[in-house]
């Protein structure tokens, strides 16, 4: 703590002009969140285990008949993935809120929307993407016809990115509330419906051997829209949550 004594003779302190460095900040945020999540492996694995479990429940609860399973599989996968993504969303900003680093994030001289987007990207990388990669494996268990596996994974990868973005708005809105979990799902689930319709539609089209391009294109369009608007909504919601 001796350093500043040396500056006693200079009565004026240099002011900083707002500078760039956005990329540095984004990179550091990505790295920080990835490191944090990878140090708590359990939290990364939980949504995946949940996904596999829910998928396993249906053949037990409904019927092990392969034909029936194949016909309802697209919807099942999408509903299960949607719930798994939702479950993990509550913690997206929660720990940052608890230890005060969210407050600091809001005071950073960088655009909050960009930093929020970095956090959402990490969420997708560790939840949506693994879900998409895991789905074909479970597809075998539900006797999904061959040829629809790639579409299943692709539609989930595209769709869960939108889910992460939309869900982050809800997570940001409820982060200041003591028990925001149920409220979060109440807010976010209705907004998930378009993604669900086109995601399940893509897989169904693949099963029926129809064109899938339209469904995937709309999923992509939804993602583009979410990428454009959600970061601003997340930033605004965080400000409302923290500062009222």
């Amino acid at each position: 703590m001796q350093r500043s004594h040396a500056q006693l003779s200079t009565p004026e302190m240099a002011m900083h002009a707002p500078q760039g460095g956005l990329l540095v900040a984004i990179k550091a945020t990505l790295k920080r969140d990835l490191t944090l999540m990878l140090r708590r492996r359990g939290e990364v694995l939980n949504p995946l285990v949940f996904f596999a479990l829910v998928i396993t429940l249906f053949p037990i609860g409904i019927s092990p008949d392969p034909e029936l399973l194949a016909s309802i599989a697209p919807g099942l996968f999408w509903v299960a993935a949607l719930l798994a993504a939702l479950l993990s969303l509550d913690s997206l900003f929660r720990s940052d809120y608890d230890d005060g680093s969210l407050e600091q994030l809001l005071l950073a001289p960088q655009p909050l929307a960009a930093l929020g987007l970095a956090k959402v990207a990490v969420h997708w990388l560790l939840t949506g993407l693994p879900l998409a990669l895991m789905a074909p494996l479970l597809g075998i268990m539900l006797s999904l016809p061959a040829g629809s596996y790639a579409v299943l994974a692709l539609s989930l990868a595209l769709g869960t990115a939108s889910l992460s973005l939309i869900g982050a708005i809800g997570a940001a809105l409820t982060v200041g509330l003591a028990r925001g979990g149920v409220l979060l799902s109440l807010l976010v689930l209705p907004l998930y419906i378009p993604v669900l319709i086109f995601g399940a539609g893509a897989v169904q089209a693949a099963i029926f051997g129809e064109g899938i391009a339209a469904h995937l294109a709309i999923l992509g369009a939804l993602l583009a829209l979410a990428l454009m608007l959600a970061p601003w909504a997340i930033a605004a919601s965080l400000r409302i949550s923290i500062n009222g």
């Binding site: 409820t174 509330l177 409220l183 109440l186 807010l187 209705p190």
Partner: peptide, 11 residues
Amino acid sequence: LYLGVIALRGA
């Protein structure tokens, strides 16, 4: 959606 909005306001 309405119920979600109301719940959020209440919270």
